[in-house]
Structure formats: structure tokens, C-alpha cells
């Protein structure tokens, strides 16, 4: 059994999932907003990849353009979502969930109107679209590149949140909003910027996943579901927990498909159930999330 390449796959899909889930967990665990439109954001990124990079072959320029567009559009969408959820502050999670779920349906249908109803593929940049011999068989180079990029993003996100003063500000806002306001910092600015960054990251993940998963309407919900499972397993608001949860899910999915094919759909949610029963705060909860 090709364990080596299955593990590589698990890591590649886990890292893509991480980029998507980390924004969701920051916004939920740290800012207390449950954003069910996050999957639709990811999908928007995939469609931007299709629009800019094309389906058959992509130049580095066009693929980079897609990534830049994803950052800009993502930031705008995050800002818009921030404005939309502001009136709901203090009205509980159900209202937020319904609002953002509705938004995700609207965004998905808009994407189909704009980019057409056909399912689309997204091309990988030239040079990354081939295969290399690894573990005794052909393996797509692009997935190796995704692993490299995903690892860098994971380190940057962790460092930014845990080791920089900006990250400390975000965490402080969560822990004690009044105190942060009292020392003269505009909390709204902090939350808005965080929202924009988290959404941009989701769109970037969408572009990067394009050459693997394509751009098709059902993708947003599929990835959102996995990301919610990651958060349950990893613990809310925790970068390390999200990373480990994502990798775990990526690897379980890939190995499970081969080792226990008839149970592969259940493995993931079975793991989730175990975590909920025995460790409801997740495997790696943040201090802030636990105290709440």
C-alpha cells in the first residue's frame, strides 16, 4: 500500500484545510462570531482562480494575479461581513448563524451567476502542473508546492498571533475588551482588521486548492463542514490546535479511504464525536476560549 504518498496527500489537504479553518477559528474563538459564510469565501477564491488562472494552463503571472485578487476581494468581503454582523452583537449565536448561512447561499448563487453554472477546473502554474516520481509512482508537483506554501502560512499565522504585538492585541481584545478600550485602543479597528485578514486567508486557500479541487458550487459547504470539525477537534481559537486538527483530518481521510473504505465517511465524524464526549473543549483549547 502506498503509505508514503497517502501521507503526503493527507498533509497537503490538511494544510489547505488549515488555511481555511484558522480564519474561522480566529473569528469564532477570538471574536465570537460564527461565520458560516466562510465556506462561500473559500469558494469565491476558487472561482477567482478559475477566472484569472484559467482551466488548462496558467502562467505564474496569472496565478499570482489570482492570489492578489483573492487577498483584495477577501479583505472587502471580510469588512462587509463585519458591518453586517455588528448589529447582531449581543443577540446570540443563532442569529449570527442564520445570517451567515443565508449569506453563504447568496454568495454561492451569485458566484454561479457570475462565473456560469458549469463545474470548472483550475490550472496550476507552469512548471508545477507536472508529476515527479516519488514513492514508486507519479505524484503531482503542485501538491508538494501546496505543502511548502501551507507550512509557511501556518508558521506565519502562528507567529503573528502568538509572538507579535498585533497578535497580542487581538488576543487581549478577546480576553478583556473593556480593558483594551480603556487603554485607548479602537477595538472596532482591531476586530475589523482581523475579520479582513481571516477572510482573505480563506480566499487564498480557495485559489490554492483550485488546481486540486477545482471550482464548483458544492465545494464551499464541503470545506466548511470539515473546518467546523477541525475546530471541534482542535479547540476554538487555537492556532496549534487547528493545525493539528487539520492535519489529523487530512491524514485520516486519505489513509481511511484505503484502509477502511466502507467507513471512510464516518471516521472523521467518529473522531469528532470522541473529542466531544471526552474533551469537549477540544484537544488544544486557548486560555481565552476556556475561560468563556
Amino acid at each position: 500500500m502506498p503509505v508514503g504518498s497517502l501521507l503526503l496527500n493527507g498533509i497537503a489537504s490538511g494544510l489547505l484545510l488549515f488555511m481555511m479553518a484558522v480564519g474561522l477559528t480566529i473569528v469564532f474563538g477570538l471574536l465570537d462570531v460564527l461565520n458560516l459564510a466562510h465556506g462561500a469565501f473559500f469558494l469565491s477564491g476558487a472561482y477567482l482562480g478559475y477566472r484569472f488562472a484559467g482551466e488548462a494552463t496558467a502562467s505564474w503571472g496569472s496565478f499570482t494575479l489570482a492570489l492578489l485578487a483573492a487577498i483584495v476581494v477577501g479583505a472587502l468581503m471580510g469588512g462587509a461581513l463585519m458591518l453586517l454582523t455588528r448589529p447582531l452583537v449581543g443577540r446570540g449565536h443563532l442569529d449570527q448563524a442564520l445570517l451567515t448561512l443565508g449569506l453563504s447561499l447568496v454568495v454561492t448563487e451569485l458566484l454561479l451567476e457570475i462565473f456560469g453554472r458549469n463545474d470548472h477546473a483550475v490550472a496550476a502554474p507552469t512548471g508545477l502542473d507536472g508529476s515527479v516520481e516519488i514513492f514508486g509512482g507519479a505524484y503531482p508537483v503542485y501538491r508538494l508546492a501546496v505543502i511548502a506554501v501551507g507550512a509557511v502560512v501556518a508558521i506565519v499565522v502562528w507567529y503573528a498571533l502568538e509572538r507579535t504585538s498585533a497578535g497580542a492585541l487581538i488576543r487581549a481584545t478577546v480576553a478583556d475588551r473593556e480593558m483594551v478600550e480603556a487603554i485607548g485602543i479602537d477595538v472596532r479597528k482591531v476586530t475589523t482588521v482581523t475579520f479582513m485578514l481571516a477572510s482573505a486567508l480563506a480566499l487564498v486557500a480557495g485559489v490554492l486548492s483550485g488546481p486540486i479541487k477545482g471550482a464548483t458550487a458544492g465545494l464551499g459547504n464541503e470545506i466548511l463542514l470539515l473546518a467546523l470539525a477541525v475546530i471541534v477537534i482542535g479547540g476554538m481559537g487555537s492556532v496549534i490546535g487547528t493545525l493539528i486538527g487539520s492535519l489529523l483530518i487530512g491524514i485520516v481521510q486519505n489513509l481511511g479511504a484505503v484502509l477502511l473504505p466502507q467507513f471512510s465517511s464516518f471516521l472523521l465524524f467518529g473522531a469528532m464525536v470522541l473529542v466531544i464526549v471526552f474533551r469537549p473543549q477540544g484537544l488544544f483549547p486557548t486560555a481565552a476560549a476556556v475561560e468563556r
Binding site: 460564527l34 458560516l36 449565536h93 448563524a97 471541534v232 476554538m236 469537549p280 468563556r292
Partner: peptide, 12 residues
């Protein structure tokens, strides 16, 4: 957090 995550899953 947990119930609301479950709600999110269910809605999705």
C-alpha cells in the same frame, strides 16, 4: 461554544 458549533454543523 460546543452547542453552537453543533448548530453550525447541523445547519450546514
Amino acid at each position: 461554544p460546543l452547542p453552537i458549533l453543533a448548530l453550525g454543523l447541523a445547519l450546514t
